[in-house]
Nucleic acid binder design. Structure first.
Lengths: 236, 236
DNA sequence: TGCGCTATGTTCGGTTTCGTACCAATATTC
DNA sequence: GAATATTGGTACGAAACCGAACATAGCGCA
């Protein structure tokens, strides 16, 4: 799963996949930033000023229906970039996007990105492919949300998180996992313990350690894998 | 809701929104086609040969996990076009897309569309905006699927269908509605009857008549409306 | 060390939804 | 118009999940 074949200086898969001249276009504008837990990358209905190429950590794309109720619908990690709306030529979105696992990455101004997308066909191609892979992520989340029971959704989420951080350790409370997979905190606790009992993960306070990826994939079933294979075909 | 302000010859909102010179680019290649129930517009993992601008009817975007299990994740009607993957520079998708309500529309070759997207910035802008609105549709479906009970999801689906066909009458069996909103047939029957009892719809065999849009919007809550408002901002 | 905070484990009754089955009503076919 | 197929209505126990509450455990800090 690890893609260490082309060393490069970036861990972000999009930056690594860029053609040399496209990278040269963006590189002068990339600003290294630390991204603490809960840092907002996009706020609902506000103009998106910057995009973030994550190197570590995970950002959640969250649908805010009422100020009280929210639900995660997408993940962004080192496989991608925030600011999907900018890639699609818009400057805002009703979603909220914020760091769910702290990490770091590179910030780039939305305007710079817009200009690059206009000027380079190859760069545009890559980022639109990423947009496509994100669409697949969303659609499989939609399918899983209505067809997969909590335990299966949890397995899927853990696998997706693992792909995006490349680390077996996921530091999150059950409370937040509940937001991610759309269930209440106690439901997460039960599902976590069920997976742990089968030896797929080990759970300690605020922390989940992945022990058996294959087992988790079996658990997640076909809700995990299709979108991921497409990502590899398109970008990886 | 009706956008009859600019008469034009098309009912498809994207064709209507196109700049004159962009429409001129596509128009010679549009072939009028009747689209019968169940006509496939895209098949899983097969190259997409044509895109369809719908004038009437609705197509479902369906995630196929196993040959047995499938679930709808998106709708396309006269507000949009099929072949999202082509708009995003790819030529295939793991999804299945087919007509759920028969209708008609215009077919255009994917290659023609690709060329037009490359050549015209304004045309590309419009279609990427549509892609963005589709992303919002998907994300709100994902949120609704895990947070909204059956009755609410049904109300949402009916509203979305209504927007896309501009006709109060929706011709679908409960069996298929079940596929749409991710529940079993009997569950649909119960939800349909509940909405009918409150005077929001009238149901006859194979047919649902919308009586009270406002009431349905209340029923659907915030799961309906956000994506739709964005569509209007972007395109409508 | 011990206090207090946060996170986890567990339970309970109640609701939703499921799977399934069976019957009734409405088309369709002959 | 009778026979057949399709669709809709309803019921049932079982399972999943909910909201809420409360007890326990890990952790930071005074």
């Amino acid at each position: 799963m690890a893609r260490q074949d082309s060393p490069g200086k970036y861990r972000n898969q999009l930056l690594r996949a860029l053609a040399v001249e496209d990278l040269a276009r963006l590189e002068p504008h990339l600003k290294s930033v630390a991204l603490a837990l809960r840092t907002p990358l996009e706020q609902p209905n506000r103009s998106v000023a910057d995009l973030y190429f994550l190197e570590e950590g995970i950002a959640s794309v969250v649908v805010v229906t009422t100020p009280a109720s929210k639900g995660e619908v997408g993940l962004v990690g080192r496989e991608g970039v925030s600011g999907l709306c900018v890639l699609l030529g818009d400057n805002r979105t009703p979603h909220s996007v914020y760091m769910q696992l702290s990490g770091k990455g590179f910030r780039i101004e939305a305007d710079v990105m817009r200009m690059a997308l206009e000027q380079s066909t190859s760069l545009r191609t890559l980022f639109l492919r990423y947009a496509h892979s994100f669409v697949l992520q969303l659609s499989h989340t939609a399918a899983a949300n209505v067809n997969a029971p909590v335990e299966r959704r949890l397995a899927r989420w853990l696998l997706m998180a693992h792909d995006r951080i490349g680390n077996n350790e996921i530091t999150l409370t059950h409370e937040f996992l509940g937001l991610m997979i759309g269930t209440r905190r106690a439901g997460v606790t039960e599902a976590v313990r069920a997976l742990a009992k089968r030896g797929l993960i080990r759970a300690t306070r605020g922390n989940i350690l992945l022990l058996d990826r294959r087992g988790l994939e079996t658990q997640a079933g076909r809700f995990y894998g299709i979108a991921e294979a497409e990502y590899r075909r398109l970008i990886g």
